[in-house]
């Protein structure tokens, strides 16, 4: 199993941000973490990446406890992209993407052909090859987000954790990012966990979904089963219904905009 966690509990002071969260990922699986704001999605991702120490439970990469691994050892296997990361404005896309090779080159080893190929591939997959020499300050929000994804790709990790990779992007870039995620999973067998707000995108792209509410895991299973559970309406406190968009495909959640239309 590439990535798993059991009974993961994270406390911020007295508040439990995550309470007994469990997850097990198959190789190449796409998992969406959904839930209202403050439900613990980011916390779960950070705990999986070993960035915060859980009060209880543990995350494991290929069966080895994350807490026992060095940052470099983790980074070789797992890439994590936080929400709205910041970098110096004068850094270029290529310079940013090169940082993704740090776990492989370490402090002293020079970049070899394999590293350069990984960087080229990362730039190409995100459509940034022609923009490689632009500084981050010159980029649009969508381009910047792709640059960060590209840097994570350069790590050539078999596990990718993304925290709301499509937020703040227009619909065109949203589809592009989701398409990239899908290709990584299917073509390269990359295991992907991502927090995402758009329920329909989550349903459309993921193999399985985890639904969180106030730090509690409410649901863990396939998108179709989630649609039948009625948990979406309850958890998000909305009304709506699932409609079939195409035979054999997961349904589409059509939310009722009661408050707007009244």
């Amino acid at each position: 199993m590439p990535l798993s966690c059991s009974q993961l509990t994270v406390r911020y002071g007295h508040r439990k941000a995550l309470d007994g969260f469990s997850l097990s990922m198959e190789k190449g699986e796409i998992r969406a973490l959904i839930g209202p704001n403050g439900s613990g999605k980011s916390t779960a991702l950070q705990a999986l990446a070993g960035l915060i120490r859980p009060a209880d439970g543990q995350a494991a990469i290929e069966g080895v406890a994350v807490a026992s691994l060095s940052r470099r050892a983790i980074a070789k296997k797992l890439a994590f992209l936080p929400q709205q990361p910041s970098a110096p404005d004068e850094m270029t896309i290529e310079q940013l993407v090169r940082q993704g090779r740090y776990p492989h080159v370490g402090l002293f080893r020079s970049y070899n052909r394999k590293d350069e190929q990984a960087i080229e591939w990362a730039l190409e997959s995100t459509g940034l090859t022609s923009l490689a020499d632009r500084t981050l300050a010159e980029l649009s929000g969508g381009e910047r987000q792709r640059a960060w994804i590209s840097a994570a790709l350069a790590q050539e990790a078999s596990i990718l954790l993304l925290d709301e990779p499509t937020s703040f992007l227009d619909i065109g870039y949203q589809v592009e990012v989701l398409d990239l995620v899908h290709r990584l999973s299917r073509d390269r067998g990359v295991t992907i966990v991502m927090a995402i707000h758009d329920i329909n995108q989550a349903i459309a792209i993921s193999d399985r979904i985890s639904l969180l509410d106030k730090g509690d895991l409410q649901f863990d299973g396939e998108p179709t089963a989630l649609a039948q559970s009625g948990l979406i309406e309850k958890t998000f406190r909305v009304r709506g219904k699932f409609v079939e968009v195409a035979p054999g495909k997961p349904p589409h959640f059509d939310v009722e905009l009661t408050k707007l239309l009244r």
Binding site: S70, A75, A79, P82, S86, A87, P103
Partner: peptide
């Protein structure tokens, strides 16, 4: 170079921040 990023980013890239 890495220390110019947020701690979370630098650590994800494999740096012992």
């Amino acid at each position: 170079v890495m220390l110019q990023f947020d701690a979370a980013v630098a650590r994800s890239f494999g740096l012992s921040y």
